[in-house]
Every structure is written in structure tokens, then in C-alpha cells.
């Protein structure tokens, strides 16, 4: 039992399951899955579907955080990617043509990759702090997206494009498959090559890694590039969901959700050992939390209050000082209670 409890995924899973249980108790329909035209419907399916953009961004964020960094620009990159894709589709005049879609998606994801490479350059080559370097793009990115869309919210009508976020394959949402593929590829690259181990080494002890001959610059650069690329894909999914490129709203605050998902999954913000599975659980937890909040009748706009609470709790649990403070609490209580005769016996 204790071996199970010590597993790093134990607490993230407990949180997720508790949340699902809470929902199930308060509304049994939560776990109900119905079948229409061979497609599955239900709250859980919605969570699988809606969590896709967050999942992609959080995967990238995991890699970045593992190098002791942070990427604040993912939301802006999503906006850029969505704007690029939809503008290309709109300008083509043939929104259903698969070739057009391929070009649009390719270019959009490429734009995301370029953004990521830019961040990586600033951080790994110029040595600028990650927060600030990605802040630049966070600021300018939405401006660029607005420029691409000409200041409007670009909307399109393209069934194949719509399919990506809203379509079904084998009864499950297509977006979920995108998540799965992304998880699989990231996990494969990190764990089947040496990248994961070397990334952790760089994140935990950059100097020792340098002395061991690890090429830290390339690894850090690569992490930001991956984050940009994944944010590019997330931007496509987001725009496909609403069939519009909204430069201001696309991916707003997603960087925060992603950071939270990573931290909930048990990866420390101080860098180092990371867990892809943990991030996956974390992303599902965030999405479930959002759906719970909505169900509670709270307007979605108020969600941030709950997020703030979660951030504070998670960050405090990770804070060594807070744990020390809490760790000393029982002892303090004991000395306090031991002043009474009953307490003294209980303590011994």
C-alpha cells in the first residue's frame, strides 16, 4: 500500500478521481455516456474533447519547466497559429479543399515552431530570463495575430477543418485522438531517446551537466521549440472548435492552466524530473475542475477564483517552507496538549 502511495502519480490521480467522484455524487448523469449514431456523448467525453488544446500546451510546458524555464507565450502562439490557418483558408476561396487545409495547417504549425525557436534563441543563446523572453512574444504575439487577421475575427466555413475539433472517429472525438498522438509522440521522444534523461539532468544541475558533456543549449532550445510547435497545434484545435480566429481570446490564460496542469501532475517548477503521465492527469484534472465549476452554476468567467485557490494550494504544498511549517505543527500541538495531563499520556 505504501509503495502505491509513494508512486508519483498517486496524489495527482487521487485528486482527479475525487473530483470525478464529487461530480458523480452530486449529479449521477456526469458519468453517464450515451450513444447516438455510433458516437459517444456525455460529460466525460466532453472533457476528453475539450481538454485537447490544454493537453498539447501542457505537454510542451512540461518540457520547458523540466529545463527550469517557463513559457508564457503559448497563448499568443495559439492566437498566431489560428490566425495564420484561418486567413490562408479564407483567402484560398476553397475552404473544403484538403490541399488548402494541409497548407494552412502546415504553415500555422510552422509559425508556432518559429515562435518557439525564437523563444529558445533568446533564452539559450542570449541568456535572457525565460519569463521575460517569453513575455516579449506574449505581448507582441497577439499583435501579430491581429495583424494577420486584419484586426477582425476571421471566420470560415469548412467542414473538414471543423472536423478536427468537433468530429468523431470510431465513436470518440477526433480531438481526443490528437491528444493521444501528441502524448504518445512526446513520451516516445522523451523516453525512447535519451532526451528525457538529459533534459532532467540540465534542469536539476546545469553546471554538473555541462561538466558531464551535456549540450544544454540545444536541449533548452529544443524544449521551447517543442512548446511552440505544440501550441501551434493547439491553436488549430481552438480555432477549429469555434471556427474563428479570435486574436484576443484564443488561448487566453492557457499558459496559466498549462503551468497548473504540469504542477498538479507532480513536476516541480524548480525544474528537473518530470512526468508526462502526471501532466496528462493534471490536464484532465483542470478540465474536470472547469466543468465542475460550470456545473455548480458558477459563470465560467468566475472560474479564475477557483484557479487562484488551486494555484495557492498547490504552490504552498510544493513550498518547502510551508511544509516545514506544517511539519512542525503536530509537534507544537503536542507540546501544547501535553501540558494537560490527558495530553501527556496521549503523547507518550
Amino acid at each position: 500500500m505504501s509503495a502505491v502511495m509513494k508512486h508519483r502519480l498517486f496524489w495527482p490521480l487521487v485528486v482527479l478521481l475525487a473530483l470525478i467522484l464529487l461530480n458523480t455524487v452530486s449529479r449521477p448523469s456526469f458519468v453517464r455516456i450515451t450513444v447516438h449514431d455510433g458516437r459517444l456523448y456525455g460529460s466525460l467525453i466532453d472533457i476528453l474533447r475539450n481538454s485537447a488544446p490544454l493537453m498539447l500546451v501542457a505537454l510542451g510546458m512540461t518540457l520547458v519547466i523540466a529545463t527550469r524555464g517557463i513559457d508564457l507565450s503559448v497563448g499568443a502562439i495559439m492566437a498566431v497559429s489560428g490566425a495564420v490557418a484561418l486567413t490562408i483558408i479564407q483567402d484560398s476561396g476553397d475552404p473544403a479543399n484538403p490541399a488548402v487545409l494541409a497548407v494552412a495547417i502546415g504553415t500555422a504549425v510552422g509559425a508556432g515552431l518559429v515562435c518557439g525557436l525564437w523563444n529558445g534563441f533568446l533564452i539559450s543563446v542570449l541568456g535572457i530570463q525565460p519569463i521575460i523572453a517569453t513575455l516579449v512574444l506574449m505581448l507582441a504575439g497577439r499583435g501579430i495575430a491581429l495583424l494577420i487577421t486584419g484586426g477582425f475575427i476571421t471566420t470560415i466555413n469548412s467542414d473538414p477543418y471543423k472536423f478536427m475539433a468537433q468530429g468523431y472517429v470510431l465513436g470518440l472525438p477526433f480531438a481526443f485522438y490528437v491528444s493521444l498522438v501528441a502524448i504518445a509522440i512526446v513520451a516516445l521522444i522523451e523516453r525512447r531517446t535519451a532526451l528525457g534523461m538529459l533534459t532532467e539532468a540540465v534542469g536539476i544541475n546545469p553546471e554538473a551537466s555541462r561538466l558531464a558533456g551535456v549540450r544544454a543549449r540545444g536541449i533548452i532550445w529544443g524544449a521551447y521549440a517543442a512548446s511552440g510547435l505544440l501550441a501551434g497545434f493547439a491553436g488549430i484545435l481552438y480555432s477549429s472548435n469555434i471556427m474563428a480566429a479570435d486574436a484576443n481570446a484564443a488561448g487566453l490564460y492557457i499558459e496559466l492552466d498549462a503551468i497548473l496542469a504540469v504542477v498538479l501532475g507532480g513536476t516541480s517548477l524548480a525544474g528537473g524530473t518530470f512526468s508526462i503521465a502526471g501532466t496528462v492527469v493534471g490536464a484532465f484534472t483542470i478540465q474536470t475542475l472547469k466543468s465542475t465549476i460550470t456545473f455548480l452554476g458558477v459563470p465560467p468567467a468566475v472560474t479564475p477564483v477557483f484557479m487562484a485557490a488551486v494555484v495557492v494550494v498547490v504552490v504552498l504544498v510544493q513550498s518547502r517552507r510551508f511544509r516545514r511549517f506544517m511539519g512542525r505543527l503536530p509537534a507544537r500541538l503536542r507540546t501544547w496538549t501535553s501540558r494537560t495531563p490527558d495530553g501527556a499520556e496521549a503523547a507518550s
Binding site: 513575455l135 516579449v136 512574444l137 505581448l139 507582441a140 504575439g141 497577439r142 499583435g143 501579430i144 495575430a145 491581429l146 495583424l147 486584419g150 484586426g151 486574436a247
Partner: peptide, 13 residues
């Protein structure tokens, strides 16, 4: 377009 403001500010930053 006003979006140039953000881009210029980002560049200056």
C-alpha cells in the same frame, strides 16, 4: 491597425 502598438512595444521591450 492598433495591433502595431503591441508589436512595437514588444520589439522595444
Amino acid at each position: 491597425d492598433q495591433s502595431w502598438t503591441r508589436i512595437t512595444i514588444g520589439g522595444l521591450l
